[in-house]
Amino acid sequence: MLPLPPFAYHRPRDLEEAVALLSELGPDAKLIAGGTDLLPNMKHGLLAPKHLIALDAISDLDRVEVLDDGSLSIGALTRLSDLAVHPTIRVLIPVLAEAAAEVASPQIRNMGTIGGNVCLDTRCVYYNQTQFWRSALGFCLKKDGDTCHVVKGGKQCVAACVGDTVPALIVLGAAARVLGPEGMRAVPLEALYTTPGSDHLKLARNEVIVRFEVPRPGERLRSGFFKLRLRRSIDFSSFSIAAALRLDGRTIQDLKLAAVALNSKPRVLNAEKLGVLGQDLTKEVMSHIGEQFQRRATPLDNINVDSQWRKEVIAVLVRRLLERVSAVGAQTASVSS
């Protein structure tokens, strides 16, 4: 067994209480949703919060709704397995259903939430290990040590952001609705992440993500997700890429690509940056986009899959995703909520 360090357990009934508890208990308190990231990390001695504040007794945090303006609202406590099979999401924004379906394993998707996935701690082969193993290593910058083993001589942690739903939410232009002592604020998903990997979320300690808002996808949106991993289940990403695409005929009206499992921030590129806005999405252009993305993405040795190989295959993976996404028709069916 890997015993958990002791803590007090709180189960607030509403969000305000949760925020108040967070403020009151200070840095020793941590939110727990599904616990599938937090508990293994605690078992590894990566953190030992004195208080856990569970969100599961708060009602209505696990709702998926289509609002009148066509935008979607996804409660932070929505479980990944529910997202993966949600009919509206599958039709309107398949990228998110596909991403959710690729996380971990069936059991973990039943437990894990989208909020937890977005807030997933960054990962690194030198960090996600037991206390004993890390002591044998001599620890690292991110926790208890003073060197980085990924970037030799590096002064900053580059542990990887690997939440699979993150690139999906980014290409959809989603924002997180965050409640803090000061009230509610909206943070575009893209702006939620920063460096270093040891502190990669731009979220205050006493803030709670309440839900995610996805702008109206519109009829022409095509989207899709691909996750590279060596095992087809129970495996974190070696490279996950999401694409959202709008075509006018064959012409690229809008394209957004986002990837994780690189460093502590997702890599995001759009049609403009890729220099393909208004171009026809031909085979050559898809290859070109793949190569552009590859050029600007740098896999690191923070993940236990050969980083050079990951770099090499990125162009192919991006091209293939575009091929798949552009081949299926954009969703046109009207979906009732």
Partner: peptide, 27 residues
């Protein structure tokens, strides 16, 4: 494994397969 990697501890919680090693008894 006691940390979510193997599934040997799978039980049903409200009819859904769940890993008992990553679930708190109080929860």
């Amino acid at each position: 494994c006691d940390k979510g990697d193997c599934g040997a501890c799978t039980v049903l919680v409200d009819d859904r397969p769940t890993l008992a090693c990553l679930t708190l008894a109080v929860a």
